[in-house]
Design a protein around this nucleic acid. Sequence first.
DNA 1: ATTTTCTTGTGAATTTTTTCTCAAATAAAC
DNA 2: GTTTATTTGAGAAAAAATTCACAAGAAAAT
Lengths: 214, 214
Amino acid sequence: MIKKEKIPKVTIHRMAVYLQVLEDLDREGEDVISSSKLAELCGVNPSQIRKDLAYFGEFGVRGVGYFIKDLIGSIKHFLGLDHVWNCAIVGIGNLGRAILRHKGLPYKGFRIVGAFDCDPFKIGEKVGELEIICTRRLKEKAKELKIEIAIITTPPERAQRAANHIVEAGIKAIVNFAPARISVPEDVIVDYVDFSTHLIYLSFNLARTKGKNI
Amino acid sequence: MIKKEKIPKVTIHRMAVYLQVLEDLDREGEDVISSSKLAELCGVNPSQIRKDLAYFGEFGVRGVGYFIKDLIGSIKHFLGLDHVWNCAIVGIGNLGRAILRHKGLPYKGFRIVGAFDCDPFKIGEKVGELEIICTRRLKEKAKELKIEIAIITTPPERAQRAANHIVEAGIKAIVNFAPARISVPEDVIVDYVDFSTHLIYLSFNLARTKGKNI
DNA sequence: ATTTTCTTGTGAATTTTTTCTCAAATAAAC
DNA sequence: GTTTATTTGAGAAAAAATTCACAAGAAAAT
């Protein structure tokens, strides 16, 4: 169904936004939407939406628009969200705990099945349903719990060590929240999330409009 | 110093990454670095780094490279990070608390000076140094505390209301962690952070390599 | 039935971003 | 002092992403 063509990363990120907005519309009882209305709600150009969708197939009806429920189903399918992904969190600090307690993720198809930390004082402690396990046991537990995605929430200086354990455990996908670059083999996908980066973007824009650094 | 030319958002995000890596190098005692070595550490192309820096001026020495301490100073300056930004968190749930307790932000120039929530049971509660204040008092408190950046960490259905309070308080920059689009006047900058989006990116790639949806 | 009004999907045009290439500048080696 | 090694900065070229423009299909109106 999906073309062999390389799909840009920004397209995937926008798909996630479209999905979010479509699910809201569905909850509000809407049935059909045009690319221009959806574009307005998402803050993008209508042909952007049509081009993005075209990477995956044809989902609309000319003169009508897109049937919301169908489109949600299609998008979920080609994003791999009609499957529950087992995730592990490595590094149980403030952020790790917040993600563990976050109720939205399981609904979206991401189930956190393991909580790992290397601090001996934390091992054995319960966080919600899960007991914190030593990071050294990640390899063994990854098989048992069928972990497919790892989330790094360690301090920056421990991110690389966490990544090494994850790679050794055969996990092929990482979201890294630690403010540090990590190096992993080519077949492991890493996506970085760093909120100071987003604050910096605002800082730059504020400084600029205030004329502080021109 | 900065050219009038529009600077791409991706450039700013990459600058934040360069800064992170440069600060690591500085801590390790390095003095000078070439664009190619820095590029390798950041996982980008060397001319990308030179082009990115060229938006802001000339910082290197031909045949030598970049003096790390100087470059850090320059980048911090033009990103507006030689200034402490006062931030407010709106929505004190798990994520809000994790950000409040996060030690890295003050060091990076972002000081959280206000914690707001609309839940009457939370108001008055202490989180670290701060007392949770009713979101309705944001306008009054924004002036008093000189709040310049607001961080939304409410549930999605309350994000727009939070944004309205923020806009009314005259704050011009928002980081929105809630998985919902918000609409604000043109002169207010919004940056979205949604980690389910990042998990979805991994989901797509994993599903693809596993051949689940082709 | 025919016309009008929508709205998609897609090739073409445009814009933006990235990468290549190389002259100019610097330092080290001889 | 001259040659050789580097490495930046920037113009040119290439690649990628976005937007435009319109034919084709569908429904509503006449």
